[in-house]
Design a protein around this nucleic acid. Structure first.
Lengths: 143, 143
DNA sequence: AAATTAATTGACAGTTTTGCTCAGGTATGT
DNA sequence: ACATACCTGAGCAAAACTGTCAATTAATTT
């Protein structure tokens, strides 16, 4: 039961982006340096984040990435969904229409309930929450 | 974010064991046949379940496995712990003493909170719950 | 128009984890 | 003694994970 580093990277990168963007585009190179994540790997992640309507890109000099929506409206579960990290604990429940084994599987309800809790929790946290927290930690360590 | 099949098998096997044991030992061979899980794989799982004080073994002819404690006192999270399936979503939090990055990691609280929810949910379900549910489903389909 | 910057994309490779088998062993009841 | 059934460790194939490399496209500045 591990959250992949891909998902962890994506969340970290998004917080960093929001933290250092004053409304102007942030380059992946900057995020790469600050978060010690390989630039090319970040590129992969941001393609997916863009498709997931989490960020939008600005090309050319002075370009980079911006939030596609206000940070308050971006939930952590959306970020993870975008990088194609399933939040459902068992594979038979990948399709939204539920799995066939509803009746037979004794353990079905366990995993279904678990999936709900995970989703619920990660949806309750927004990028704004995390950014504010990061801001607090930053000012603390600078004092 | 997947629950490994190992953990899924372990839970299924435990329900099946409890369902078909009338106080007498149940052989892995029986569970293997009923749940379509490889016998040798089950053997591996049950070594760990025994070490985790979930089951106890009876050797020799007529032997097999028994619950080490009443089903009401066996929680699903204990079963999963026994087969060495980490319930903590990120590796830096494997040790109980917490990870070093408490202060730096912005995302630390997210994963920590998630881990708590997962643990809390799986601890709220006992083997007795699952067995009763299985019993219900069984009698329903037989009517 | 040319050069520069930076996003975009696809292929692919090394490593780790997972899921499972095989080949033995050991203990216990009859 | 012998059958039963637990016990153990080695090993292996497939998948997933974590990236890298190479090449392209698009926008901006000069």
């Amino acid at each position: 039961m591990r959250m992949s580093t891909k998902a962890q990277y994506a969340v970290r990168a998004m917080v960093n982006l929001n933290l250092h963007s004053g409304g102007s585009p942030v380059t992946l190179r900057d995020i790469s340096l600050r978060e010690s994540i390989s630039l090319t790997y970040l590129e992969q992640l941001f393609v997916k984040l863009r498709r997931g309507n989490i960020v939008k890109s600005v090309r050319g000099p002075g370009g980079g990435y911006l939030l596609a929506r206000p940070a308050r409206e971006i939930q952590v579960d959306e970020i993870i969904d975008s990088v194609e990290e399933s939040l459902v604990p068992v594979s038979c429940m990948d399709q939204k229409n539920g799995c066939v084994c509803d009746d037979q599987c004794v353990t079905h309800n366990v995993w279904h309930g678990l999936a709900e809790r995970i989703r619920q929790f990660l949806a309750s946290i927004t990028l704004a929450d995390l950014t504010e927290e990061a801001q607090r930690k930053l000012t603390q360590s600078n004092s």
